[in-house]
């Protein structure tokens, strides 16, 4: 074997770079999520009416629901694209554990979808008349909460990997699981209670999802490969 040339990157590094490239080149898994987020936030005042006090009060909840739906967007393709073109078979045949592959794919999805939402949320919060304290709360709670949404969604994506139109089923499967994240996320963001307690619970939920998801999703993918 020829030894010249730069060595190939590690499998997981190569996977992260690949998924980020694919997401960017389609012309935006990332920008698509943020645009959808913007649409939801922008139409809410038309539905609720121009009551600035009311908007400021329900603003954190609107931002969180919008973030949840924007995260769901495209999540059904997280593993399905790889299953259809045969890449998943090769993941199973590599010496890299499938659990780590799942984690790296979740990281790439969050960097493309979740992180842009976190960065955009203070600006969209301004559109809903949130004060400075609430803007910080929304951004901080989304920063620690959106990874949990991606991770739990990945379990649903793995379960529906072999279904052609699995997107709706995915939403039905994971929305109930996302309720605790939504409750504590909005609680931390709106400041109805003290900020710290719900924020720490939210951190705990994200860590639990981080620990559970790789195994659950990998198990689903192994059985779904049949």
């Amino acid at each position: 074997m020829k030894q010249n040339g730069a060595p190939l990157p590690s499998p997981l590094g190569a996977l992260l770079v690949r998924d980020l490239k694919i997401g960017r080149r389609i012309g935006g898994a990332a920008s698509m999520g943020v645009l959808f987020f913007l649409c939801l936030v922008a139409i809410t005042p038309f539905a609720v009416g121009p009551d600035l006090a009311l908007l400021a009060r329900i603003g954190p909840a609107i931002l969180w629901i919008a973030a949840l739906l924007a995260t769901l967007l495209g999540l059904d393709r997280l593993f399905q694209a790889d299953a259809e073109d045969g890449s998943l078979d090769l993941f199973l045949m590599s010496d890299t554990p499938l659990e780590l592959i799942v984690l790296v794919k979740c990281l790439a999805h969050w960097l493309l979808t979740g992180l842009p939402l976190v960065i955009a949320s203070p600006f969209f919060g301004l559109m809903l008349g949130l004060d400075a304290r609430a803007l910080e709360g929304v951004a901080a709670s989304l920063l620690v909460g959106t990874p949990a949404l991606t991770l739990i969604g990945a379990i649903g994506a793995a379960l529906t990997v072999s279904l052609r139109r699995g997107g709706l089923l995915l939403a039905i499967l994971i929305l109930p699981l996302a309720i605790p994240i939504l409750i504590f996320g909005v609680a931390a963001a709106s400041g109805a209670m003290a900020f710290l307690t719900p924020f720490l619970v939210l951190c705990g939920l994200t860590l639990a999802a981080l620990a559970l998801t790789p195994f659950a999703a990998a198990l689903a993918l192994r059985n779904g490969a049949e």
Partner: peptide
């Protein structure tokens, strides 16, 4: 290059030249 990085198992990782 991605598939090679994923599938290679030997300790001596082939270089980009092997892909070319």
């Amino acid at each position: 290059a991605f598939l090679a990085a994923l599938l290679v198992t030997s300790a001596a990782r082939p270089g980009v030249a092997a892909v070319e």
